[in-house]
Design a binder for these strands. Sequence first.
DNA 1: ATGGTTCTCCGTATGGTATACGGAGAAAGT
DNA 2: ACTTTCTCCGTATACCATACGGAGAACCAT
Lengths: 259, 259
Amino acid sequence: MAATDNNSAPDPARTIRALWGTQEPPRRGPRHTLTIPQVVQSAIKIADAVQNLDRLSMRRVAESLGVGTMSLYTYVASRDELLELMLDAVNAEAVAELRAKPEGEGWQDGLRRMARISWDLALRHPWTLQVFTGRPTLGPHSTERYELELGIVEGIGLDDVEMDAVIAIVQTHVEGVARRRVEADKVVRRTDMTDEEWWGLAYQPLAEVLDPANFPLGSRVGTAAGQAHNAAHSPEHAYAFGLERLIAGVATLIANPTR
Amino acid sequence: MAATDNNSAPDPARTIRALWGTQEPPRRGPRHTLTIPQVVQSAIKIADAVQNLDRLSMRRVAESLGVGTMSLYTYVASRDELLELMLDAVNAEAVAELRAKPEGEGWQDGLRRMARISWDLALRHPWTLQVFTGRPTLGPHSTERYELELGIVEGIGLDDVEMDAVIAIVQTHVEGVARRRVEADKVVRRTDMTDEEWWGLAYQPLAEVLDPANFPLGSRVGTAAGQAHNAAHSPEHAYAFGLERLIAGVATLIANPTR
DNA sequence: ATGGTTCTCCGTATGGTATACGGAGAAAGT
DNA sequence: ACTTTCTCCGTATACCATACGGAGAACCAT
């Protein structure tokens, strides 16, 4: 009989056991040739290398481990489960960095440090921005990451719901701008064309069709922003600008509590 | 000879002509049975219905129009180009709403209105959050949308680069939280399981493995946030909270210019 | 009017994807 | 020694985008 009675109905309990490594080994049958962490690390290595999640195929992971494609399903229930395991695994990197909290760091610098850690993590593992679980990842590293992030905004005059919200919006901001950074890089490779080359091809046909008089603000502001950033968009600038606006906004909240 | 000398090298000029509808019709050959807008509208209808971009296949679009799959490539250079055309097309909806600016609206209410328009658009067309061009979409509606958005923050004491940045960070925020909203809905369908059902399956195995004493802040804050929102995450709450923080942060900038 | 040219439509082929199914054979329990 | 449980994985199914090239339509020049 096949061991795969995997009816495509997701099993959170199974995933949680895989995440936390709590799974008694089977009592019979052939030895495992791999472990879950091996599979996950191999998948992460491939995802980092190919940069794009849809190039992370089960076949590729299996080949890199020297096993058949279907053997992977002995270790993970599905590709989706594998992605969830990968996500929790890379969160360990954020945890390690978050732990290195400077003595006497204030909440504002704390949020700046947290944002930087998240930004760096996203650029190291761009595929994380494409994984979307829709439900929280309940793994050990994800849980600890949240714990440490909350530590940054504890005791500064926010209530519990506000603490949660502040972490969430900073992460949302960082993920959003990191996504733009990653996509800007990706499009250069995918089109095999630098931004300059692309604009060179786009400029003339665009000029024939777009009258600046119809878009006075866009022309002026777009030109100014383009020159300031030396590119149409600057995710780095948006990162810093948005982060400082958020921090200032939180400071306003702390100074004027709604209660 | 085939008309398809489409070497997979992207052609911005071609895309721009398609976006603006400036393309003299061919002088010879059989009549077109379709138009680009027909193809785009049909694709949008399908994308709205299936909610997920990877279910928008060229085959499906072709079938809905009663033509063969490959015939679509007469109208659009590639699936990517089609997505770009779709994106610009739905931006027309945002343009129409942005034009309805109330008399005497201040910049703060303007940003709130802009955010609401973007949020609604994203929920009406969730697939837009999955399209990523990496370069700006230079279509007529996208261009006009930017123009109208800039109008909201013109003359309030920001310089051009700041105006651009404020629009960008608000859009980044809205897209981020809308993405969470959409994914939360999607996961219910994909797993065929409500959040309650899922938590019911996850609770017991999680309790066996996660000791609240190791995650005191997370336990306390997570519980408080969960009860306040009646869910683990509330994109709607994050939307409003983040937007108000950003607006307050921009107000701070206006009050304390960096120049 | 006719032949050449340009064009649309689309059948087919290529090379990719996840994963369901079930068989071969290994390891352990009885 | 026999049965049970298990891993590994070959094969099949059902998708996908799109390259290629042929059939035939519509126009143009002669």
